[in-house]
Design a protein around this nucleic acid. Structure first.
Lengths: 160, 160
DNA sequence: CTGACTGCAAACCCTTTGCAGACCG
DNA sequence: CGGTCTGCAAAGGGTTTGCAGTCAG
């Protein structure tokens, strides 16, 4: 599935503006890589992005794709699905529950909510396939990471 | 964070009963490994489970941990967080949206819902940390996989 | 021009697999 | 006892890194 061309162009302009502001160079590779992720609605892997970009630019390397994707994350232009996946995480809680996920350190905590157990799933979702379960994923920065970040910033940016 | 001892025991009994029914052997290693995942509320990696089990049983090997965890998945006793992570998946859609995830093939599709954009996050969640975003993850088996499964079952279990 | 960026190749995990011996039932 | 299961070691696949040459600004 692909995203409308107009929308892709809009995201590209956003990227250019943010990159310029962050002092990041707008190389051909980066533009093509961003276009590839932004065009795809099926949440590609690095490998899939690599293949797509190669079609337009046969010389890119897979490691540039990785470096660029992480750069785009740092710029806040994309996210990963689920916890930033260093390795598989397991869950032995079979009761319905929801997750809080720290986007920085990957910490995941369960929480319960009677209200959230009754999520109204829109009808069109059934066209994707059978629905087995539904839960909420809350993302944020955990208290521990917030502290760490505060310290880092004090260290890195001595107030002007 | 740990789960109450009573609850862990309950899950262990459930495991024993399901294992027996499935004709799966209840080895020491499996019991310890299951106990480790079931005791932990922070959704450990295989490595973390390995370390925990080693404390009680210094001779287990990491590959047994992996084999057992996947076995437990097959028995329906645990799940993984997010898409079954073969590799990282990226998402360039910055607008609020929700995900449908096929637990079999890992396909992910976006969908929108004005209702679901207003999720009531329970207050205690704020104790974990700052909340940046919240979205719904719907899990199921996509239409394509449902077809595949039907074919496989016809092939494997010729009706008696 | 010059520092940031790329491509290459090798290194580095995490995870899986083949095999011989150990153990559950 | 027999087939399943474990431990070991080595292979496999995704991701990262060091380095020398290249390119955007």
């Amino acid at each position: 599935m692909r995203i409308a061309e107009r929308e892709v162009e809009r995201r590209l302009e956003q990227f250019k503006s943010i990159a310029k502001q962050a002092g990041v160079k707008l190389t051909h590779q980066r533009l093509e890589i961003f276009r590839a992720v932004a065009s795809s609605a099926d949440h590609p892997t690095a490998e899939a992005v690599y293949k797509a970009v190669r079609a337009a630019m046969p010389t890119v390397s897979l490691d540039t794709v990785y470096r660029t994707l992480w750069l785009l994350m740092d710029l806040g232009l994309l996210t990963t699905l689920g916890p930033r996946q260093d390795s598989v995480r397991f869950d032995a809680n079979l009761e319905q529950h929801h997750h809080y996920l720290c986007v920085r350190c990957g910490m995941v905590r369960d929480f319960d909510s009677a209200e959230l157990n009754e999520l109204p799933i829109p009808d069109p979702v059934n066209r994707f396939g059978q629905v087995v379960s539904a839960h909420v994923e809350v993302r944020g920065v955990c208290t521990k990471c917030a502290r760490d970040l505060a310290e880092t910033q004090i260290a890195e940016i001595p107030d002007p």
